[in-house]
């Protein structure tokens, strides 16, 4: 089977400082990869390089496109990359405000990606928006409300609906549960797990919260100072950490 995404030797530097370096992995369809590490470990830099928001200094990010098979997205043209960004790729930001249009209704937020790829039947767009609100557990009657009237957890669920409506094949998530209350986090995690399984999504999730990867990720990479220090199946890494840093991470969670 062709991997959906092949990451080869990605490196990003900020001046002389290393953002991330020597990162390689394959992601297969339906697989969820977790990337954990403390802040400053390079995990967000890596995610932004993979998603095309930052240009890596070296390496390849090869995506198995529908039309042309595997293509290096680092060297593809900006229009092509932006097209991917609104069709097969999705990006869930840590702060819903960064991923939503706060002055546009919930329906408009969900509909934007549909309209961007050419849907132009108002009734159908609206029906799909309402359907998706339901799937992220927001009442359909809120379709004309703006996100400013939503709670933090609802905004995050709306952001997820807005991203998943076009049926993307790969979702990047940057601390999707960060900044939410613990009870709200749990509900969001449940929802995400359901959606990932139901849609057979492939995802790359960056988080510092080991509970998130335990629940969602099939595989795990642990990052420190820009390098991957340990990788493997999630349960294996968490239950039997090999690297001293991973051991510290795991034990610090247990202590809490």
């Amino acid at each position: 089977m062709t991997p959906l995404l092949q990451v080869k030797d990605i490196e990003k530097r900020y001046g002389t400082r290393i953002g991330c370096s020597g990162v390689s992995f394959d992601l297969y369809p339906g697989e969820v990869m977790g990337i954990v590490g403390e802040s400053g470990s390079g995990k967000s830099t890596l995610l932004n390089c993979l998603a095309g928001h930052l240009e890596p200094d070296a390496g390849q990010v090869i995506f198995d496109t529908r039309a042309d098979g595997p293509v290096d997205t680092v060297t593809m043209s900006e229009p092509e990359r932006r097209m991917l960004g609104r069709t097969d790729w999705a990006f869930v930001h840590q702060h819903a405000r960064d991923g939503l249009r706060m002055s546009v209704s919930a329906g408009g937020n969900i509909g934007e990606r549909l309209m961007a790829v050419g849907d132009c039947h108002y009734g159908q767009i609206r029906d799909r928006a309402i359907d998706w609100l339901g799937r992220v557990e927001i009442d359909g009657s809120r379709v004309d409300d703006r996100p400013t009237a939503f709670s933090g957890g609802m905004q995050q669920r709306l952001q997820i609906a807005r991203n998943l409506v076009t049926g993307p094949r790969l979702v990047f998530m940057d601390e999707p549960t960060g900044g939410l209350d613990v009870s709200v986090q749990a509900r969001l995690l449940d929802l995400l797990r359901g959606l990932v399984r139901e849609m057979g999504l492939s995802a790359i999730i960056v988080t510092h919260d080991l509970a998130v990867v335990r629940l969602l990720a099939d595989r795990l990479m642990v990052m420190k100072d820009g390098y991957v220090v340990e990788a493997g199946l999630t349960d294996q890494v968490l239950d039997d950490p090999q690297h001293a840093y991973t051991q510290l991470l795991v034990s610090s969670v247990l202590q809490v």
Binding site: V104, G107, G108, G111, E112, R113, M115, A116, V143, D144
Partner: peptide, 15 residues
């Protein structure tokens, strides 16, 4: 990228 233009029209109709 004209999705946003249609978002404006969508918002008009919804309101």
């Amino acid at each position: 990228e004209y999705g946003l233009m249609h978002v404006k029209l969508y918002e008009d109709i919804s309101q």
